[in-house]
């Protein structure tokens, strides 16, 4: 991995970011032969820092990667996980692709919309929820699947989905953990998950160490 030192201009652009995010940004840039490759990881970090992919965030990422803001916007808008509008604390996604559809995903989605009061594709509940239907998330054997901040729950029924919404709304957990939610609200799984994993997501950004929002015990 190559050594990366930010220019004064680059460093200034992200001086408002937390120290860990600044350090991670430099590390991410060091992982690729071409800094343009860091766009997607850096967009995740900008979401952590700014709450969603803001215009400023795209400018910041552009400065770090040598792209114009329009180019960053072009990339960010291609991918569905980069949210370009403010989102709730809990991004609840319901897979409604074919396998989940066959096993009642539409009813699960309807239950979540009803219980949260937030329609599909929108945010509400005083910033608590964003609800969206998503395409296949690779849990077809455990359909229907629901994701909270990209942490997965398999085999969800409409009733359990309502409980999940209430649990999130009333308990407002700091970290959502796939193991815990699966135990509380899940059913049949696509496969044996093996040992429990204690970590989860803090924000609606995938809880991946190098540029995500991992909470719970360190891995």
């Amino acid at each position: 991995m190559k050594e990366v030192v930010l220019t004064a201009k680059e460093a200034t652009a992200i001086e408002g970011w937390s120290k860990p995010s600044q350090q991670r940004s430099v590390e991410i840039l060091s992982r690729y032969p071409d800094k343009r490759s860091a766009v997607m990881p850096l967009l995740y970090i900008s979401m952590i820092e700014n709450g969603y992919v803001t215009e400023d965030g795209m400018r910041q990422v552009g400065l770090l990667t040598g792209l114009s803001p329009a180019q960053v916007q072009s990339v960010a808008s291609f991918y569905t996980m980069y949210k370009r509008e403010p989102i709730g604390d809990y991004l609840v996604g319901v897979c409604t692709s074919i396998s989940c559809f066959l096993l009642g995903a539409d009813d699960v989605l309807a239950a979540i919309e009803d219980e949260s009061g937030v329609p599909d594709g929108e945010s509400g509940g005083d910033g608590t929820f964003s609800i969206e239907h998503v395409e296949c998330n690779g849990a077809c054997g455990g359909a229907p699947v629901v994701l909270v901040n990209w942490e997965m729950i398999e085999g969800v029924t409409p009733e359990k989905a309502r409980e999940l919404v209430r649990w999130l709304r009333d308990g407002r957990p700091d970290v959502v953990n796939t193991e815990e939610m699966q135990r509380l609200f899940g059913g049949k799984r696509a496969f044996d998950w093996g040992v429990k994993e204690p970590v989860g997501a803090i924000l609606p950004v995938p809880a991946f160490g190098p540029y995500g929002s991992v909470g719970g015990e360190a891995t």
Binding site: Y79, M81, V134, N137, G138, L147, W150, E151, M152, T178, E197, V199, A201, P206, A207, F208, G209, G212, V214, T219
Partner: peptide, 10 residues
């Protein structure tokens, strides 16, 4: 790794 796979990525 697809973005929706944080646990596999971890």
């Amino acid at each position: 790794i697809r973005g929706e796979y944080p646990k596999p990525a971890r």
